[in-house]
Design a protein around this nucleic acid. Structure first.
Length: 659
RNA sequence: GCCGGUGUAGCUCAGCGGUAGAGCAACCGCCUCGUAAGCGGUAGGCCGCCGGUUCAAAUCCGGCCACCGGCUCCA
């Protein structure tokens, strides 16, 4: 058969030839350096037979793909090491059963059913075993078995591997990778690809932690021990990663929330319930004011609705009992002999729908946009709660747009524009858009096929028109309609959904909403749910990490601190602070009995944007010496000049100082 | 909810069978100071909670609670 090299050159090789054979034909030097190959753009190792006519590019340790190869092999090395670890503890190696061991973003993991639980304390010993396996330089080989033989290998020994084999589609190869021999090595069901031998793996890896993980992510199935590791090509990269991890921890909003006194989650109040401290509340209020302005400008009408609603309301909407699992249980008065029951509201939409429905609507009123900062309550599982990003009570910058089917796309575009404005104002660039469509295999969706298809198409068109980079993910739709979510990562790399836009053909149906069209007939409106921030709590959590606590002036809880050089300027410092406050800035004078250096430092640590230093010179001249956070002394200027610049920065919500 | 880990002063942490410690913060005093920590002093603890083992428990064991890392789910 013929294969083609990157330069277009054709190479004649025997049937079943591998990338190793091709490398050898090109030259012995390359054959030695080769670790894998890109075959028609797909990552191959040196073992897997090439398809005829393949375009082959040999990879060496210099290629970035090398990382994927050795991370994968490291997962196998980890499994082998764990097995040897338990054998030395006197267990039968077969008592260590294996789930899956894939490559992940910075490394790898392996899911292991171990005879006794692993803890972080076991990791150094396992890691040492792994290094030993690298030093043994065990060569890998790949082989294929017929289904029956493959099953026979694991029958009665490893239910996980057996299950995996049974799920490999008929006609697909069932391949194994073996490192070392059967007695002094390790063999695993695996589709590959892998490095040629364990000695080729750079020793720059580290086992990071153990965590429980349900087999196949299903909580009804057994829990395995997942051992996570990170791995890089060079010691520098590993060091850099570990350093970044430390830095990321400093950005953690839970830590900054405490250090900057932004919010509190008090177990006595209840887990997952946020207490906003005065400083954090400033951020909240500023964000709400910003959103209110933008919404009013865009034709939204503001409404206010209660925190609870009758159970009947949610039965009509279908939220109850559909989402009963994640709701606080109904508030009932049965013991008082009253039948009525209420639900802490898990969503605002039913309330808004009743506002729409309270009188007859004309097509001339549409699109009708009802907005509210609505606080909702959801009973998230205890283990799910996390700082501000996963809570049990949170405020959505919610709105519901009622429109005609023809208006859907235009409204969708309008919301996209608003979301992008929010992101641009805050300098959030690292986000992705995710369009959630139905999982064709699932039955959980309401509404008819044709409407779903229409909505899904409209969303994609609008996203494309807005120039968004997006991915389409099956099964990510809400039960009542498809949606577009904006997703960002927190400091530790976990992904969170922020803004969301969802099309809903279901609720208007359930509540029997109508409008009178130009034809005088009644028609059914379409509804859009949308929340640009998503939840204020989560959004602020992400913002804290995004800015590492260095909020732009308009969000900073304290915008300026006036620091007198000595007590002699205390009166002038107070006067300056007073004038800043008069002008609408959040400013204070720091009159503590401390040296000014200490006050400057405290202001930096508190991430206050401006420090105005006042000495004899400034007092005499009516000026202030301006110091910008992280930048240092900007020099003196007349107080009005500072006020003008700072107010511009504040009112225009600038990200950078104009000075 | 499940698996693993961790709970000591407001914060960060040491102590790990024998009378509870440090730094920072707080408070008081001295210093009156020019852009990231001046000096001295004082006060502060049901060592998460409940039970057990022991002559003796912050320390060992068990249960509970909270938090952390994951898994799962997510309107």
């Amino acid at each position: 058969m013929t294969v083609y090299l990157p330069d277009g050159k054709a190479l004649e090789v025997p049937e079943g030839a591998t990338a190793r054979d091709v490398a050898q034909r090109i030259g012995p030097g390359l054959a030695k350096a080769a670790v894998g190959a890109l075959v028609d753009g797909e990552l191959y190792d040196l073992f897997k037979p090439l398809p005829p006519g393949a375009r082959v590019r040999i990879l060496t340790e210099k290629d970035p793909e090398f990382q994927t190869l050795f991370r994968h092999t490291l997962a196998h090395v980890l499994a082998q090491a764990v097995r040897e670890y338990f054998r030395e503890k006197g267990y039968d190696p077969d008592s260590v059963k294996l789930g899956v061991g894939p490559v992940i973003e910075k490394g790898f993991y392996y899911d292991i059913d171990a005879p006794e639980p692993l803890s972080d304390e076991d990791l150094p010993a396992i890691e040492e075993k792994m290094r030993e396996i690298l030093r043994r330089d065990l060569p890998l080989r790949r082989f294929v078995l017929p289904r029956e033989e493959a099953l026979a290998r694991y029958r009665g020994k490893d239910p996980y591997k057996t299950e995996l084999i049974l799920e490999i589609p008929e006609g697909e190869e069932i391949s194994f990778y073996q490192q070392g021999d059967e007695s002094f090595g390790f063999t695993d069901l695996c589709r590959g690809p892998h490095v040629p031998s364990t000695g080729r793996i750079p020793p720059h890896f580290k086992l990071t932690h153990v965590a429980g993980a349900y087999w196949r992510g299903d909580e009804r199935r057994p829990m395995l021990q997942r051992v996570y590791g990170v791995a890089f090509r060079t010691a520098e990269e590993l060091k850099e990663y570990l350093w970044q991890l430390e830095e990321a921890k400093k950005r953690d909003h839970r830590r900054l929330g405490r250090e900057l006194e932004l919010f509190l989650i008090d177990p006595m109040v209840g887990k997952g319930l946020v207490l906003w401290l005065p400083k954090g509340n400033v951020v909240r209020e500023e964000l709400m004011a910003f959103m209110r302005e933008e919404q009013v400008r865009r034709g939204y009408q503001l409404v206010t609705t209660p925190h609870i609603g009758s159970l009947e309301l949610y039965k009509t909407s279908g939220h109850y009992p559909y989402y009963a699992e994640s709701q606080f249980p109904p508030i009932s008065f049965k013991e008082r002999g009253e039948e009525e029951a209420y639900l802490l509201k898990p969503m605002n939409c039913p309330h808004h729908i009743r506002i729409y429905a309270y009188r007859k609507r004309s097509y001339r009123e549409l699109p009708l946009r009802l907005a509210e900062f609505g606080t909702v309550y959801r009973y998230e599982k205890a283990g799910e709660l996390l700082g501000l990003t996963r809570v049990r009570g949170f405020t959505q910058d919610d709105a519901h747009i009622f429109c005609t089917p023809e208006q859907v796309k235009g409204e969708f575009l309008g919301v996209l524009d608003l979301v992008l404005k929010v992101f641009a104002t805050l300098g959030l660039k690292d986000y992705r858009a995710r369009i959630g469509v139905r999982d064709p295999k699932s039955e959980k969706y309401v509404g008819d096929e044709a409407k779903w298809a229409l909505a899904e198409r409209q969303i994609e068109e609008a996203a494309a028109e807005a120039g968004l980079r997006y991915t389409v993910e099956e099964g990510d739709a809400a039960f009542y309609g498809p949606k577009l979510d904006f997703v960002v990562k927190d400091a530790l790399g976990r992904e969170w959904q922020l803004g969301t836009i969802q099309v809903d053909y279901n609720l208007p149906e359930r509540f029997g909403l109508t409008y009178v069209g130009p034809d005088g007939e009644e028609h059914r409106p379409v509804m859009l749910h949308r929340a640009p921030f998503g939840s204020l709590e989560r959004f602020i959590g992400i913002l804290i990490e995004h800015f590492a606590g260095d909020f732009p002036l308009w969000l900073a809880p304290v915008q300026a601190v006036v620091v007198p050089v000595s007590e002699k300027q205390a009166d002038y410092a107070q006067e300056v602070a007073h004038r800043l406050k008069e002008a609408g800035l959040r400013a204070e004078a720091d009159l503590r009995n401390e040296r000014m250096q200490a006050k400057v430092r405290d202001a930096e640590v508190q991430k206050i944007p401006y420090v105005l230093v006042i000495g004899e010179k400034e007092k005499a001249e009516g000026t202030v010496s301006v110091r910008r956070r992280h930048r240092g002394n900007l020099g003196g200027m007349p107080l009005p000049a500072f006020l003008e610049g700072a107010l511009k920065e504040y009112r225009e919500r600038l990200l950078e100082s104009p000075f």
